[in-house]
Design a protein around this nucleic acid. Structure first.
Lengths: 182, 182
DNA sequence: GTTCACATGTAACAGGTTACATGATTGG
DNA sequence: CCAATCATGTAACCTGTTACATGTGAAC
């Protein structure tokens, strides 16, 4: 999914500035999809405006910089609806942690233990964020996504904990270790 | 993780051609990470050779095109070990399906049902592939990754099935539907 | 006879990131 | 006084994809 679509989707829920879109994509309800940078958001908004899918109004603020508030147009809403009508692309899951575990035979068991600890900690942190979000957000669509996130991160955490021993056993053998050192 | 690192990692397990690396990244043991295209693999191998991290020998074959078999060098092995020593980057999970569900209030319950059916089918297909891989692959590191995949895809499937009713209820109301139509 | 598997490679293009440029106000 | 928050935007760069170019042999 392109940043352009993300912007359009966020604006379908209500007006926002580029700055706010960035925030939402990295902290808010939309953080499960992409975290877009300013370098992609601002050009996207310019393009969307040129294409007539969004409107822009400038607002002066006392003390703060001017802001450009974007609203979705009817044409934009139609384009968004059309995109939602298409078959969603396959999920993409990329994990450097799993790549590391795949290559565990090149590592010492100490290094694997370290990686497992770090990964577990991150999973816990994500679960905490999701639990907090679940309690504080009342948007039904978001609740569905949060529930999904809780389910899979919990499953991942359970797996990593349960398989810890066998994971450590993947390490390169002591003999191989000495071979490499010598 | 870059295609370059993926190539290096695959070659750490044994010699391969660019063609074989592509196959492994989309079907084999390494398919959980990236599916790289020829347009990125071949240039990566050229660069790795220039940098002395891999060696290349050309092999003629009767009836088939010549092939270039790449082997990792000591320098390459060291570079690979160094990369594995670094903290792995955060997992990246992107789901257009979840984006759709987040925006469910813009959809009819029919469309949501359709999306749920499609998503469920894909999850089942992935689970089947993983189950088959589990039975046919005896590499321990791969087994760990397959186990992880089974755990999270199963959790996702369970969630999608259990929450189906509430998911369908996310649809836009009939009044809103009529409003949009008129 | 046509499609598939084998096999390598390039060029144009798309998409996004990073770093930079600018600048006011508020809170510690 | 320094850092953070608000706020917008551009240019250079990096990485990767798509489509193209080329060619053989086997299977159906």
């Amino acid at each position: 999914m392109h940043v352009r679509t993300l912007c359009l989707g966020i604006l379908a829920f209500g007006d926002a500035t580029g700055y706010e879109i960035k925030k939402m994509s990295e902290e808010g309800r939309f953080s499960h999809f992409i975290d877009a940078s300013y370098g992609s958001i601002y050009p996207s908004l310019t393009r969307l405006t040129e294409d007539g899918l969004v409107d822009c109004r400038e607002e002066q603020q006392s003390g703060k910089p001017d802001r450009k508030v974007y609203s979705i147009t009817d044409k934009g809403l139609a384009a968004f609806a059309a995109e939602l009508g298409e078959e969603p692309a396959d999920d993409k899951f990329k994990s450097e942690f799993l790549f590391l575990m795949m290559c565990a035979e090149f590592l010492t068991s100490e290094r694997i233990g370290e990686a497992l600890d770090g990964y577990e900690a991150r999973l816990r942190a994500k679960l905490d964020i999701l639990k907090e979000a679940k309690a504080s957000c009342d948007h039904p669509g978001s609740q569905y996504c949060i529930g999904y996130g809780l389910a899979i991160y919990q499953a991942a955490l359970d797996y990593v904990r349960e398989s810890r021993k066998s994971a450590l056993a993947l390490a390169r053998s002591k003999t191989a270790e000495t071979e490499t050192v010598s």
